[in-house]
Write a protein that binds this DNA or RNA. Structure first.
Lengths: 187, 187
DNA sequence: TCCGTTGTCTAGCACTGCTAGAATCCGACT
DNA sequence: AGTCGGATTCTAGCAGTGCTAGACAACGGA
């Protein structure tokens, strides 16, 4: 029994190693640099080992993304009585601190189902946190719909800034403007 | 002279052919399907011909994107006295009708410089149209900054919807909510 | 008619994700 | 203790990618 247990433990360790290595590599050099060969080399195994843990590259991205959702939820919940402005700033801050993970979560093909009955819990949890924060100022607008809009607005700021479409200097002011409008428009 | 002129004409025609073919292929099967080999095959030339017109694949994407900005400007200017809601709807409509071109413009690496002195005119023009529309309701907020926020919000809606992160059914209602808040918040 | 330039193509490089099948290792049983 | 069997890992390879060097052909000008 103990033998099998040890093997499973080792296997789980390697699973983690793959994910943390993929994430490090992605944050350091971008997801394009996360090739199966380089990843295999870094964990000091051959390529096929990756495929005994994940169906393929996309599933690795998806696994990193999933971790990201859990961390995002934690980041947004850090201050339990945060204002809308606080949550918005926390959201953008998370994206800035973990750009590659953010890409995995929202921009890259990760194979994760979203608005779907099969949506994994971490995704659902993250949205729930946003719902709690933004739903409070939805006024007579549908809370879910309003949260989606607020989320999309934040996401747009993040992606356009990251893609070099918006100069990063005034990010804080943009968040301010956005939050002002979102909150101020409550009936 | 006429010989050289004819050659230049033919060359320009092929240039256009490459771009329209790339665009068609991208809209039909996504940019991943636009490989240099397939593109070359479709225009009935060999691969290296592409490189006599463009530095590489990325420059082709950039050229399609540039066309997209011109068309986007046209789409947003179609109704010269459009309301903010009208412009917002036109923006999202353009993205929905031309998803691949929209990707080239905002999501993919296109090599186009944005907030930069070297920003091509079509990009600048497109932003100016948005500035005219959204700047009018900026209130005491900086017009440029406010327009950036509004644009980012629309962009977020578009990308999250296209990536399957938001169910597409209520897009119109989301635009409505967004515009309400943006306009309603004016001091 | 021949030459030279111009333009195009064939063939190839180094890389990608992914996989079949060989090789190896190691626990278990006689 | 020695051998077997099954799980595990690796080597080697496929088909595809973007891109390019160098061979080749086509064609206008002398």
């Amino acid at each position: 029994m103990t033998v099998q247990q040890r093997k499973e433990r080792e296997r789980a360790g390697r699973h983690r190693l793959i994910l943390t290595t993929a994430r490090e590599l992605a944050e350091a050099e971008g997801w394009d640099a996360v090739t199966t060969r380089r990843l295999a080399q870094r964990i000091e195994y051959s390529q096929p080992v990756l495929y005994s843990h994940f169906r393929g590259r996309e599933e690795i991205v998806g696994a990193v993304a999933l971790e990201g959702f859990t961390e995002l939820t934690a980041a947004l919940t850090a201050d339990p009585h945060a204002s809308v402005a606080g949550v918005a700033a926390a959201y953008v801050g998370f994206a800035e601190r973990n750009p590659a993970v953010y890409d995995a979560m929202f921009s890259l093909a990760s194979g994760l189902p979203f608005a779907d009955e099969a949506t994994p819990a971490p995704l659902h949890d993250a949205f729930t946190v946003l719902l709690d924060a933004f739903g409070a100022v939805a006024g007579d607008t549908d809370r879910g719909l309003f949260t989606e809009v607020a989320w999309a607005a934040l996401h747009g700021l993040v992606t356009l800034t990251r893609a070099g479409r918006l100069p990063p200097e005034h990010t804080a002011r943009r968040i301010e403007v956005l939050v002002d409008r979102l909150v101020g428009g409550a009936a």
